[in-house]
Amino acid sequence: MRQALRTASFQLLPGLAILAGLFLLPLSYFFVVSFWQVRTFRLRPDATLEQYARVFTEYGSTLAWTLAIATLIATVTAAIAFAYAHYCRFRAGRFGDGLIFLSLVTLFGGYLAKIYMWKTILGGTGALNSALMALGLTSGPIPALLFSPFAVIVTLTHYCLPLAILPVYGALRGLDDTAIEAARDLGASGPRIFRDLILAQARGGLTAAFALTLVITAADYVTPLMVGGPSSNMIGLFIQSQFGNRLNSPLGSAMAFVTIACCGLIVLTLSLTLRALTRPRT
């Protein structure tokens, strides 16, 4: 037993070294940097909350807008993911595996490609406008499709959907058919089964799907840059530019950590709400 533990700790060593040296340490350092300052283009150690003050005063509305749109995207994505996973698990029969396979195909491969495709699809001469005009639904292209919050929502929902389906489907697969039959046998109606069993079972997966989408969306900058218009400036753009032309890593760090902390709070609220909603009663 002690021998096994010793072997295990040796085997964990490289993995933990990567975690500590390339994740915990850089992130802690980066957090510390958020209390520093940049003076005459040089990074100076300090212990100031000035950057955090700037995040809320100068970028407060951008942050709020980002969190609002990210929450919207995460909600829509989690809802579609749940509906799709539910359909695959309970309704699709033998096609269920194939539909899940389809979401796996679109899982990886082409973060940039997907954003770029939505740009062309939603563009003035793009596939959607051409199709709408060919069908005679509109007389001319709808310019508002691209360079708008709508485009950001569509693109990020598309990007996050396969990532969100997997945890929800995984959770629903853990629920076996006999449990549902037992609930029916005990007198539970359709909506009761949905809340007491299916939603309760999917809670973990649903929270994971929401959290994943929220965090990816809130910190993305490529999508708003490519398909969002001037009205859809998101905090990611400003974080990124602190490391590009503005060279203010303390401010960028403060923005990033405030964004993550806000996402954490939103996820916590959702998780507690879902728990209260699906808590078993006696």
């Binding site: 992130l27 990124q240 490391f243 960028g252 990033a256």
Partner: peptide, 19 residues
């Protein structure tokens, strides 16, 4: 060990750049 998966890539990128 799975913590890094939950951090957005943008944050990971700029943190590693600074580090």
């Amino acid at each position: 060990l799975s913590l890094p998966v939950m951090v957005p890539p943008l944050l990971l990128g700029v943190a590693l750049l600074t580090f």
